[in-house]
Nucleic acid binder design. Structure first.
Length: 517
DNA sequence: TAGGTCACG
DNA sequence: ACGTACGTGACCTAG
């Protein structure tokens, strides 16, 4: 009998938690529906039944809608009548079976079956294992950090209220706007739908005009760290001292994973204070964390997909891609590239991957629109293959109605047919970006399966604990660290064959912060 | 519940 | 002449 499920990762997690086998599943109706239409948003069984079997659902769909009530815990109490629950369960199974038949055929018709069978389905078990494993947190260090933050938050709060000359809620953008732009008379830089903007870009422009600004910026940073990370994470540490995130595999439009309850894919790193958070994520006694990340995977994919000679050469020569881009764009030898030139070139490189406009580039790096336009012109003069790619991929998307990754993952783009300029422009940027971001996601998923399988095959105790888009973290006994570093690098680098080297770097430490730093 | 803000790749 | 970079999730306030 074939084992088919709806949201099989959830079932696998339960099985693994009970010490049972999670092997042998051949289909997942939710994941299949996601591959067919990754922007649909929800893949509840009821919704899929309505979507794919509207006629039949109208006849008998009510039974499924009642399933939740029937399947509530007390439905199985000795006193309850189990017949309705069993009937609803049978109906649930019947819909899964019907959807299995239809969705499997649709996957084959769109050549998505290989991605499904060799990537998405095997990945479900890897993710279930990671969720069960969890990530150990140093609770004491987290609490100490929280106390330190609170002390400072109180100090700053007093300063802010004193400078404002009245009590108000600093967390309220509305109240803060009134204080800054009415009471203190600072110039409003930008507005939102509902009033004054008080975002960090606005505050940066106001720096030096009033001493309250620096305090507000510091308050925001500390309040975010405390509420989202210290307190938020503290609430979800399990009885085992570990945090068990949920990896969503049917959410993003590009094929990436996401992480919820809690989100472990946005733990701070960019500021020195925030990066302290990563030292709270630790290895169990006697173990270490091995962290490995891809080097410039999206730009390497741009070079590969666009087939751009200049960019291919830059990667083949092992050059620093942002420095190399700066040298081309500013017309100087690489050794004459300044820090500022490299920073701007880096912004151009990111902008290209996102579907740039000169306006946004100008805003991002703080130059005039004209200057930004000149950078882009020189960029496209150098990287002619990239310009051609940008044109071709949008043209193809208009013709076909979708874009796809190297492994055939699709995103439909009805936006390109819109009469609304903004929506159509958005569709064009997505057409540029999705094949790149999505291929990177495909490759990482393949890497995760390879890493997990080889760890098992070679008898390592090591286990994957986290993925952050281009980064993997493994927890392993100290004695295995060197072997695991090598294994991670090899399996990540070997996950795809590109026309440029695909590089991954690995390092180990007692905490996430230590391993990265 | 929606909007603003901000954390990440 | 448009309005202005891709993909996420969590917390807070206001209505």
């Amino acid at each position: 009998m074939k084992k088919v499920s709806h949201e099989v990762k959830e079932l696998m997690r339960e099985l693994l938690s009970e010490g049972l086998s999670a092997e042998g599943f051949v289909f997942d109706t939710a994941v299949a529906a996601y591959l067919l239409a990754p922007t649909d948003g929800s893949y509840h069984l009821e919704r899929l039944a309505v979507q794919y079997f509207p006629q039949e659902f109208a006849q008998s769909g009510q039974e499924i809608l009642q399933a939740k009530a029937y399947l509530a815990p007390d439905a199985f109490s000795p006193l309850g009548d189990r017949a309705p629950a069993l009937g609803a369960f049978a109906s649930h199974c019947a819909w899964i079976e019907a959807l299995y038949g239809l969705l499997a055929k649709r996957l084959r018709d769109l050549s998505l079956n290989r991605l499904f069978e060799s990537v998405e389905l095997p990945l479900c078990q890897v993710l279930a294992e990671m969720e069960v494993a969890g990530f150990l947190v140093d609770r004491t260090a987290l609490e100490d950090f929280g106390l330190h933050l609170k002390t400072r938050i109180d100090e700053i709060q007093r300063e802010i209220l004193a400078l404002a000359g009245e009590e108000f809620n600093i967390n309220s953008t509305q109240q803060l706007g009134v204080i800054l732009f009415e009471k203190l008379g600072l110039p409003p830089v930008k507005r939102t739908k509902t009033g004054y903007s008080t975002s960090v870009e606005v505050l940066e422009k106001l720096q030096g005009k009033h001493p309250i600004i620096d305090y507000i910026m510091e308050y925001r940073q500390l309040a975010k760290l405390n509420s989202t990370y210290v307190e938020g994470l503290g609430k979800v540490i399990g009885p085992d001292g570990r945090i068990h995130t949920c990896f969503q595999n049917t959410v993003t439009a590009t094929g990436r994973l996401s992480s919820t309850e809690p989100n472990l894919q946005n733990i701070p790193v960019r500021t020195a204070l925030g990066a302290k958070m990563r030292y709270m994520f630790v290895a169990a006694p006697g173990n270490v964390l091995v962290d490995a990340d891809y080097s410039q995977i999206e730009l390497r994919l741009l070079a590969h997909i666009a087939g751009d000679e200049a960019m291919l050469e830059a990667f083949r020569s092992g050059a620093d891609i942002h420095t190399s881009t700066a040298a081309q764009v500013f017309g100087v030898p690489p050794e004459s590239v300044t820090g500022e030139m490299r920073r701007r070139a880096k912004a151009v490189n990111f902008g290209i991957v996102y579907g740039i406009s000169e306006f946004s580039l100008a805003q991002d790096i703080g130059v005039t629109r004209r200057e930004a336009g000149e950078y882009m012109e020189r960029y496209f003069d150098t990287f002619r293959g990239v310009r051609a790619y940008m044109y071709d991929v949008v043209k193809q998307a208009r013709r076909d109605g979708y874009v796809q990754t190297l492994m055939g993952r699709r995103r439909w783009l009805p936006e390109l047919q819109s009469s609304n300029f903004n929506l159509r422009s958005f569709g064009e940027r997505v057409a540029l970006n999705m094949p790149i971001q999505g291929t990177a996601a495909d490759i990482m998923k393949v890497a995760m399966i390879r890493v997990r399988d080889r760890l098992l095959r070679e008898g390592h105790t090591a286990r994957l604990v986290l993925q952050v888009h281009d980064e993997l973290i493994v927890e392993c006994p100290e004695a295995e660290a060197e072997g695991v570093k090598r294994l991670l690098r090899e399996e990540m680098e070997g996950a795809a064959q590109l026309s440029v080297p695909l590089l991954a770097e690995a390092s180990a430490g007692k905490s996430w912060g230590e391993a990265k730093g």
